[in-house]
């Protein structure tokens, strides 16, 4: 009896140890950035772990006032919201076409979810030239459509799965009342699909807000740059202002962390559902 107790205590402490070590490793870079964001270059360089001599917001002032960071964050937010709206509209339309069994609905569904298996990076080369040909470089419409197209597959997959679970009797009742397709879709099915729409929105937001490559490729105008491009601009400067960069990193990740804390449940379920996507 005594030995099992000792084993149990050893097991529990091992668990606590492992869990806290990884929590430390996970959070360390962020905490380190937070610490460094209050220090100047020399202090970061000389003594990375020293506490800031005095609490100064100078680096934050620099990141906000002298760089395009806030502008980039705002742009990323706008692109995300528009892409989410477009994706939800398209995902609903495709799922509804599946629901009413239009001709070739199975093929259409496969066509739309095929994107989950295709690597987006492999189409960067022609995408750049297509965007140029269509005169969509540096335009809101261009980048939003690209975001919507590249993130559509998972949304269709989730929306269709959810819509399948909604009883057909609702549609039938609506038909009896003389409702057309659009009414059934937007007035009856849409309100019922709020949970999956929330999941799709958040998954898309995380993808688009964090996107780096498309914004580097499709946007060259500084005023239209995204959050990631704005961050990368810090790196390419000749004389890197480390304190300012750390402050910028802290500012840019703040919205993401807030959103995660608020929507933890949706994100976790969305991730589980979307884990098929590599």
């Amino acid at each position: 009896m005594k030995r099992t107790n000792v084993n149990k205590i050893a097991g529990v402490s091992l668990k606590i140890f492992g869990a806290s070590v990884w929590a430390g490793i996970s959070l360390f870079p962020l905490l380190f950035s937070l610490l460094s964001s209050f220090k100047n270059n020399t202090s970061i360089y000389r003594a990375p772990f020293s506490l800031p001599e005095k609490l100064t917001w100078e680096n934050y002032r620099y990141a906000v006032d002298s760089t395009i960071l806030l502008r980039g964050m705002w742009n990323s937010l706008v692109y995300s919201v528009l892409a989410i709206a477009l994706i939800i509209l398209m995902a609903l339309l495709v799922s509804y076409a599946y629901r009413i069994r239009v001709k070739g609905y199975k093929f259409i569904f496969l066509f739309f979810i095929a994107g989950m298996a295709l690597p987006i990076h492999a189409m960067l080369v022609p995408l750049a030239s297509i965007i140029n040909q269509l005169n969509l470089r540096n335009t809101l419409g261009g980048i939003v459509c690209v975001y919507a197209a590249t993130n559509l597959s998972l949304a269709v997959f989730l929306a269709n799965g959810y819509m399948k679970g909604i009883s057909m009797e609702l549609d039938e009742a609506a038909v009896m009342d003389g409702g057309g397709h659009l009414r059934i879709l937007f007035q009856i099915l849409l309100p019922l699909m709020k949970p999956v729409i929330a999941t799709i929105s958040i998954m898309t937001f995380l993808k688009v807000y964090n996107d780096l490559i498309f914004s580097m490729l499709l946007i060259s105008d500084k005023r239209k740059a995204t959050m990631s491009s704005a961050l990368m601009a810090f790196k390419s400067e000749y004389d890197i202002n480390y304190g300012g960069t750390f402050a910028a990193i802290c500012i840019s990740v703040l919205p993401i962390i807030l959103i995660y804390v608020v929507f933890q449940k949706q994100i976790e379920s969305g991730l589980a559902a979307g884990s098929v996507k590599g």
């Binding site: 990884w22 929590a23 996970s26 959070l27 870079p29 962020l30 380190f32 950035s33 460094s36 995380l206 807000y209 964090n210 780096l212 959050m227 990631s228 961050l231 990368m232 810090f234 790196k235 480390y242 960069t245 750390f246 990193i249 840019s252 990740v253 993401i256 962390i257 995660y260 804390v261 933890q264 976790e268």
Partner: peptide, 21 residues
């Protein structure tokens, strides 16, 4: 939450944090 935060962060931010570290 603590374990998941690294996945959430924008790649640009993560990459630069680690680059400096």
């Amino acid at each position: 939450t603590a374990y998941y935060i690294p996945t959430l962060l924008p790649m640009a931010a993560t990459g630069m944090m680690w680059m400096f570290m």
